[in-house]
Design a protein around this nucleic acid. Structure first.
Length: 325
RNA sequence: GCCUCGGUAGCUCAGCUGGUAGAGCAAGGGACUGAAAAUCCCUGUGUCGGUGGUUCAACUCCACUCUGAGGCA
């Protein structure tokens, strides 16, 4: 059932995923499904490092520009819903779905049996809980200790976002969040939504950081600041979740007078480096990923060729086996 | 040439009158199930410029030396 498999390419920001994905998509007759939590938003173009118009002409990209910038309700669950629809429709055309992105949770949503879909967020309740916590620090975590001891044990009292979510699930469904599972490696062996062949791009930290710094400079030259100014002029609220994206936050702070341009630039670079570190932490514990280190190859073309070979082998190994027997 | 003040973590610096070091930032490690580019947790990484000396014991005192800044000639 080779046709049932999907290919996935991951890696930290600025590692060269986009270039690699274009090459591989063309060679494998694939369409790309982005797994990037910022590129889903329309109008966030420069700062989210979206694929260029030319790249998007060469290969069909899904899950880019699919959410209104003003939408405050986008989530992993909605991502999985839409992305899975894309995967299925790409398959129907006989092409290969190629997932490309750096948002670990989104990749997980497509390749691991995450229990999503039961309890939608309840903004009213969340606000109420935030107020409660403000009046009585620590009360939420204690409350969780009563309702869902396993989750309370797992979550740090300061991780308010997750504590609130865990409470939300308990209160809405009467079932503790821990009952839905939290098994990163899927040791339980539940059926994943897709059978994925995964590859990752690794780069020595120092080199990656150089690339990040250079890319931030390029973004500024490409008119990042004007992009943000235009969005403000159009009336988009700086508090939108989409504006939590690195770069947007800092430039909004600069336009608001809270940061000088120099400080904003420095902070964007630093935050992007830290983000890359978190991505690396996430992906390196995923044993399914076959890593390709950019330094092991004389050129990126050479690396792309090796990736292609590996993907072809793994994607069609069942057919290969069939031929042998 | 002389005088003064510096040289301690990647950076900026603290370290009473001797008991082999500690802050901030940077950095590193980790977590992650409906905000995930979000959110949260943990961690000091060091030939204290070098060489000798005094001392039970030197980042600390002494001598010499290398080096940076300033001042006087």
């Amino acid at each position: 059932m080779a046709g049932q498999k999907i290919a996935v390419i991951v890696g930290p920001t600025a590692c060269g995923k986009t270039d690699a994905s274009i090459r591989l998509a063309e060679a494998l007759d694939a369409e790309i499904i982005s797994a990037d939590s910022i590129q889903v938003y329309r109008l966030l173009d420069i700062g989210s490092a979206k694929p260029t118009a030319d790249q998007r002409r060469r290969v069909v990209h899904h899950m880019v520009d699919v959410v209104d910038l003003g939408d405050r309700g986008f989530s992993v669950a909605r991502y999985r819903q839409s992305a899975q629809t894309c995967i299925d429709s790409v398959r129907k055309t006989g092409k290969l779905p190629l997932i490309v992105g750096g948002t670990g949770l989104y990749i997980h949503a497509l390749t691991q049996p995450l229990a999503l879909g039961s309890v939608p967020p309840d903004e009213g309740l969340r606000m109420e809980l935030v107020l409660k916590e403000r009046n009585d620090p620590g009360c939420l975590h204690r409350m969780l200790g009563e309702l869902d001891p396993a989750s309370a044990l797992r979550l740090h009292p300061n991780d308010q976002k997750r504590v609130i979510r865990a409470l939300e699930v308990c209160m809405a469904s009467g079932k503790p969040l821990s009952a839905y599972g939290s098994d990163f490696q899927n040791a339980a062996g539940n059926e994943p939504p897709n059978d994925a062949v995964m590859i990752g791009i690794a780069i020595p930290r120092e080199l990656l950081y150089e690339r990040i710094n250079a890319r931030v400079d390029q973004m500024m030259e490409a008119g990042f600041l004007d992009e943000v100014k235009t969005l403000l002029k159009r009336g988009y609220d700086p508090s939108l979740p989409a504006f939590q994206g690195i770069g947007y936050r800092q430039l909004l702070d600069h336009l608001d007078g809270r940061l000088t341009m120099g400080e904003a630039m420095e902070e964007i670079k630093r935050e992007t480096r830290r983000f890359a570190k978190r991505q690396i932490t996430w992906f390196k514990r995923d044993a399914r990923i076959r890593w390709f280190n950019a330094c092991d190859y004389p050129s990126s073309e050479e690396m792309h060729r090796e990736m292609l070979e590996y993907l072809k082998f793994r994607l069609y190994e069942d057919i290969n086996d069939g031929c042998l027997s």
